[in-house]
Design a protein around this nucleic acid. Sequence first.
DNA 1: CCATTTAATTCAATACTTAAAATAACAGTC
DNA 2: GACTGTTATTTTAAGTATTGAATTAAATGG
Lengths: 414, 414
Amino acid sequence: MPPQISSTQKLRYFNQYRILKTLYFNEPLSRQELSRETNLSVATITNLITTWLDRGVILESGTVQSKGGRPRVMLTLNRAYGAFVGIDLGETHIRFELFDLKMNSQQSIMVWLTNGDTQPTDVVAKIVAGYRELLQTAVFPEEKVIGIGIGVPGVVEREGGISIFAPNWGWHNVSLLTKLKEAISAPIIIDNGAKAMGLAEMWFGGKPNNEHLIALLLGTGVGTAIISEGEIQRGVTNSAGEFGHTTLDINGRSCRCGGQGCIETYVGAPGIIQTLQTINPESPLLHGTSQLDIIAAIATAAEEKDETARIVLQQTANYLGAGIANLINLYNPQTIVLSGWLGNQLGPFFLELLPPLIEKYALPQPGAITHIKVSSLGDNSIAMGAASLILEDFLHGTRTSWRLSSGVVSLIPQ
Amino acid sequence: MPPQISSTQKLRYFNQYRILKTLYFNEPLSRQELSRETNLSVATITNLITTWLDRGVILESGTVQSKGGRPRVMLTLNRAYGAFVGIDLGETHIRFELFDLKMNSQQSIMVWLTNGDTQPTDVVAKIVAGYRELLQTAVFPEEKVIGIGIGVPGVVEREGGISIFAPNWGWHNVSLLTKLKEAISAPIIIDNGAKAMGLAEMWFGGKPNNEHLIALLLGTGVGTAIISEGEIQRGVTNSAGEFGHTTLDINGRSCRCGGQGCIETYVGAPGIIQTLQTINPESPLLHGTSQLDIIAAIATAAEEKDETARIVLQQTANYLGAGIANLINLYNPQTIVLSGWLGNQLGPFFLELLPPLIEKYALPQPGAITHIKVSSLGDNSIAMGAASLILEDFLHGTRTSWRLSSGVVSLIPQ
DNA sequence: CCATTTAATTCAATACTTAAAATAACAGTC
DNA sequence: GACTGTTATTTTAAGTATTGAATTAAATGG
């Protein structure tokens, strides 16, 4: 008789993954504790985890002392079972990161992109080469790579052709996934970098499973991940969350997206620099050659109570505060995380300046409960997020996720 | 042996309700068709629907002619099985509506509130009296009322005390539900009126199960329901979706919420009237005594190509367009519905003016796919939405929904 | 060593879905 | 009007799930 593919089987499958996910974020747990957490009977736990034990995904890691009675056997994840690769594809760099099963970084490589080598073929070649190099020095052999997640600075669409608009590159309808699959056999998931980072923030950014979270990726642009009830908000065509291009001042600065007064034009690095120029065109803070230099100079000056820097930050915080208040009013989140190279540097100053602004612009009730903080994940948060795209599938048993069958990449301003 | 309450039972329960919901939105269907829609076997369909047939929730409504072969028996909902009551509690009126199982209005009552009788006790008394009156004239006896949904102009919180801020009333920490339960035995669900209306728009506003939808309730304030993947977005404390108080012009008009340049100050009725006053303080359009009069006058004048009215609408549409663009960029929805007394009147004009503004302010890709329309549900959309809160529980088998155990009402500006 | 206690496994009972077989209900044809 | 072909529905039996209860395992403490 042919095997029955039915819903009671799906129930078992689903319960197996529920156990895995519970253990992942709460290990170590005994069978009894797992039973309590999942509301499944101990008998079922024993039954279902044999799969994971047999495959070596989880381990029995010793017993715990008891005062009378058989000691509990603690179950933990086998962090050596497999690895996740996270790739942060930025406009100026590619960062490769290899993580163990518990998302501890094992190996890291940074590659810089120059203006000359940003054709799709070049980038694909660099990704493949970087991936190979990453594995060469790593403790994990390639067959242990569960999957590769790639975070890109744009919108990844489910189906075909997309118009592209990137500051530096000029890609059009490029299916990164197809090209990469020719060279790499491991499963690949491509998604927006900010969305990926949001996953990392939810799972590894502090209190785990913070299910109403908004992560802001502040840099040249303003990327955003909005997580509601534990799910990244994608909308109909996976382009939801473009907070950077929401209008804050309808009569304000014009934006590269065609709109006016987008939050990006005030809070993105070029916007902040423009604010500085308006306040004092002669400011020595402007001497730096790159955005990074100038922002760093502002941060240093602010540390030393420089008046100009203070005003710049105050004015920027005003826009950021109003923008965050909009998010609070719309999403009523638990937590808002500031991240990205700019967010990491200026975040501490913003945290001081924001409270009165939130109080002014946000409604009292949701405003009072929202907690704003700076990311604790550091510079590899996007790579970790990209790897988390794979982890997500790994913990849900959804290798058939639509993102796997997609891979057409579009870069729009962010 | 005591009955086992386990997950395979839940599976059956869940499948029963999945069948019910599928039938609700796709009736009439035969058992075979239901099998195809739900991916359950025909045997299971036969098995599971006996519950609904026995209880009289669904009916076998005759066979369909076949060309050779046993004819299909079509299954339909028994619209006389029970009734839903929807109550639209506004600041100036209470609207009671009795619906059959398929949400066809059977009976309707309108009660006006004067300034003198807006104490909690008064309002509760009016609700109870109105409910009784509604039933007296109705074809459904009270025991057939499945539940009562109430839409209120504010935030309904899960737990206790809430500060209140209402233009007309001055309630504080009023548990409407507790008071109503003393007089009414049917289950009651209370929620924000705009959120409730969003449910009605999703299910009855056109293409059924439009799962990425935003409904704007335009009136004195701007209420909003945001539906993503078929679920109303609530956030952590059920206050998500306060679009009316998001900033559009950070240097703009000050708002009763304490913010500046909230979209409500331009698109709400008082905001539009203010715009008219700014353009022409002497305008005869301002002669009306109430908001409703003036807005109606603007609509009539615009119909007759009046220049002042045209400018007012153009300026208002500019703010509305930027606001809607923000929603598009953030939520990437399929559909945006304009509703509410003001939305119904001025909506047709906005529809003409909006496209170029969306193109200007929204990102191209999500902007192009979003469909904007005026509600087709008319004046009882909030009452229908309130009733839909009960329908939601009815179709999901979730009588234990948190909203049932709640009922503390807070009125914040909207 | 034994009583006690707690953890984990085994077992038997119960429940659910479903493929296949049986039955039902038609249209059309000889 | 019986028979055939066809499609719909129900019945049956098989396969698989979860779980309470019973059993076994592994400790502590006197």
